[in-house]
Write a protein that binds this DNA or RNA. Structure first.
Length: 202
DNA sequence: TATTAGATTGTCT
DNA sequence: GACAATCTAATAT
């Protein structure tokens, strides 16, 4: 039972614990549940945040996962405790962000493919050098998400569940009926595995 | 609206 | 040296 005397910090801690448990269940469990959660970047230019609306699961046995070939300097954060941020460079141009979703030593993660901007939209538009146009295209792709939020390689390995520069906050996950599960995008290995989770919205 | 080519660099073989 | 968990702009319909 919630009592007024319980501090906000305690409430927050419980949330973080729950979130960690959710993430720790593995990529396939965590990917749909990350929908509705919020990514925050507390940077020098203020707060930028967005709600996750699309994810992709990468498990240990997945040939398309970076962790498949083993733990390397680059993929190391993917093997750390659930809630660790893993950022990699894609096609030599784009940064993509993932959340580790298993115990230390297991290489599972969920790729954040799209967010719906909440805070710092102006800053996101500047970061993306966005020229107006439909705002829905501001962060609807993994490379765009990182560019909009200002998340780069140097953040890889940070813990998203503590009060760092980049944080993951629990949110209200959509009911399964509102989630589309489809094959993944932009990969060649095991491309047909249904591991992409999209929050259907109107 | 749909399809296609080109950009560009870290990582692993 | 090959390849990649992508994006944009340009061209075609």
């Amino acid at each position: 039972m919630w009592r007024r005397t319980d501090s906000a910090a305690t409430f927050l801690l419980m949330n973080v614990k729950t979130l960690h448990r959710t993430l720790n269940a593995g990529a396939m469990e965590a990917a749909p549940k990350l929908l509705g959660c919020v990514i925050e970047h507390h940077g020098p230019c203020g707060l930028r945040s967005g709600m996750i609306v699309e994810t992709e699961a990468y498990t240990e046995d997945d040939p398309a996962a970076h962790s498949y070939v083993g733990r390397t300097a680059r993929t190391d954060p993917m093997f750390r405790r659930a809630g660790t941020l893993y950022v990699y460079l894609s096609y030599g141009i784009h940064n993509c962000m993932n959340v580790a979703t298993a115990d230390e030593g297991r290489g599972e993660a969920v790729l954040v493919r799209a967010i719906e901007p909440i805070d710092g939209v102006e800053e996101m538009i500047r970061a993306r050098r966005w020229k107006g146009r439909p705002l829905r295209n501001l962060a609807n792709g993994p490379g765009k998400v990182c560019q909009a939020l200002g998340i780069s390689l140097e953040y890889s390995g940070q813990d998203l569940l503590t009060n760092g520069v980049v944080r993951l906050r629990p949110g209200s996950t959509p009911p399964p009926a509102d989630v589309d599960v489809t094959p993944r995008i932009g990969i060649t290995k095991a491309a047909d595995w249904p591991r992409r989770f999209v929050w259907k919205r109107h």
